[in-house]
C-alpha cells in the first residue's frame, strides 16, 4: 500500500501533471503556429474585445440561443462544469495534500458541500450518458471518443466519492481515485477533453468574426 501510494502521489503525479501542463502548452503553441501559417485569413480578424463579448455572453446561462433551446442540457452542463472545476481545486483533502507537499494552503469547500457537488457531477454524467443513449440526434453522432471522454471524467468523481465515504476497500479505492484523476489530467490535451484548452479560442474566433466583420451577435 505505502509503496503504491508513494508511487501514485509521487512520480506518477509529476508525470500526469507534466503531461497535462506541457501537453496543453505544446498543443496551444502548435495550434497557434498552425493558425498563423494556415488560417491567416481568419487569424487576421481576431479581436480581443469581440472575443470577450462572445465568451461572456455564452457564460451566462440561458443567454445564448443555444442554451435557451435545450434547457435540461444547459442546467446539466453549467452545473457539471462549475462543480467539475471547483470540487477538485477546493476540496479539503486536496488542499491538505498541497500543504503537505508544497506548504501551500488556501480556502476550501466544506466537505458536505463538496460531497453534494460531486453528486451533481455524477448526475450530470448520467444525463450526458442518457442523452447519448436515448436522444437520437445525439446517439447518431456519438463515437467511441465521446464515450471515452465521458468515462475519463466520471471515474475520478465516482472513485473520489466512494473513497471519501470509505465504501468498498478504502486503500484500493484511494489509489484508484488518484490514478483516475491522473488519467484525466494527462488525457486533457489529447482527447475530446482538449476543449478545455481550445474552446475559449474557437468561441473567441467566432465572436471576432461576428463582432468585427459581420456586425451581428453570435449567441
Amino acid at each position: 500500500m505505502n509503496a503504491a501510494y508513494e508511487f501514485v502521489t509521487g512520480p506518477l503525479a509529476w508525470f500526469a501533471w507534466g503531461i497535462f501542463i506541457l501537453g496543453a502548452a505544446w498543443r496551444l503553441y502548435s495550434m497557434y503556429q498552425l493558425a498563423k501559417k494556415k488560417d491567416a485569413s481568419s487569424w487576421a480578424f481576431m479581436d480581443l474585445g469581440f472575443s470577450l463579448r462572445s465568451i461572456v455572453n455564452w457564460l451566462i446561462p440561458f443567454n445564448a440561443l443555444g442554451w435557451r433551446k435545450s434547457p435540461v442540457m444547459t442546467v446539466a452542463t453549467f452545473a457539471f462544469h462549475i462543480c467539475l472545476i471547483l470540487v477538485p481545486v477546493f476540496l479539503v483533502a486536496h488542499v491538505v495534500l498541497w500543504t503537505e507537499f508544497f506548504g501551500i494552503s488556501y480556502a476550501t469547500l466544506p466537505d458536505s458541500v463538496a460531497d453534494a457537488m460531486t453528486l451533481v457531477v455524477l448526475a450530470a454524467c448520467l444525463i450526458f450518458a442518457g442523452r447519448r443513449l436515448t436522444q437520437k440526434e445525439v446517439a447518431y453522432i456519438t463515437t467511441g471518443k465521446d464515450w471515452l471522454a465521458l468515462v475519463i471524467v466520471t471515474l475520478p468523481f465516482l472513485t473520489g466519492f466512494l473513497a471519501y465515504h470509505q465504501i468498498f476497500d478504502y486503500q484500493v479505492m484511494i489509489i484508484a481515485h488518484i490514478v483516475a484523476g491522473e488519467i484525466m489530467l494527462a488525457a486533457i490535451p489529447f482527447t475530446r477533453l482538449s476543449h478545455m484548452v481550445f474552446a475559449a479560442f474557437t468561441r473567441a474566433y467566432m465572436g471576432s468574426e461576428f463582432g468585427g466583420v459581420r456586425h451581428a451577435r453570435d449567441w
Binding site: K38, D39, M73, T77, I141, D146, F198
Partner: peptide
C-alpha cells in the same frame, strides 16, 4: 494544403452534444 487550426480544433473539440440539431431548418 488548405486547412489548418480551424478544421483541426473543430473536428477535435466538437463534443457531439447535439445542441445544433435545434439550429438547422433541414433537421
Amino acid at each position: 494544403g488548405e486547412t489548418g487550426a480551424r478544421l483541426k480544433t473543430y473536428a477535435e473539440t466538437c463534443m457531439r452534444c447535439g445542441l445544433c440539431a435545434e439550429a438547422c431548418h433541414f433537421a
